[in-house]
Amino acid sequence: MSYVMLAVGGLFLPLFPLSMLFNLLYARLRNPVLRATVLLAWPQIGLTIIFASGITVPGWLHTWAVLTSLLYGLRALVLREVSLWTSFVGTSAWALLWILYGNGASPVQMQLFSLGISAPLVMMAFLIAGLERRFGAAYLGLYGGLAHSLPRFTGVLVIVVLAVIATPMFPTFFAMLSMIIKSLPTTPVVAVGIGIVWLLWSWAGARLLQGLITGPQQLAVADLGQANTWLYVVVLAGLMLSGVYWMGTLP
């Protein structure tokens, strides 16, 4: 029974190879609202299942979770399709939630961390929809120069990518910090593995930004409206504040 629950949990808090199902499913979604819903709900379902079943996480699963996270972090480095990039980084991040669960984090704390990880991914999904609407595809190296053609859009995109790759003071940062601190005394190798995952995310984020925002201006398209920009700014500020006041609680 526990192995069945582990497998179901491993589907929603993606562990390789079960993680492939999520990525296949996500690649088929085209509607941004649907994508956002999946990004928000998928890990929450996983958390509900593992907390409801009360399964105990075996030691090897911590290593497996980190390896899954490393695998997707590494693979995200060379992706040029931005939507796929989002789902890979999401997979890499959600897999690490097993480590928090295994180290006895409370259900509320884990749900908050999971929401904190998903929220910037959801924003990415909407930004990707904006790119697809303007250029027909969200693809690195295809057009570039967004910093000049879409300055407001670029500003928002940069901050959202920073939130995804766990930059302070976003919730993802506190989630990563908490994972390293909690796993270090019992499994130092896992803690170092999480550190390497963090490095890979930074690399992947930098490649994404470099492929989209730099370069000479290519196409003249409409920038993000002022109202929408403010909406993104407010949500990002809210995320930052939630990072500081709710998730910044130290062990």
Binding site: G145, A147, H148, A206, L209, Q210, I213, T214, G215, P216
Partner: peptide
Amino acid sequence: DMRRQSPFR
């Protein structure tokens, strides 16, 4: 200078 790739690299 976001017009050029090399500073970012």
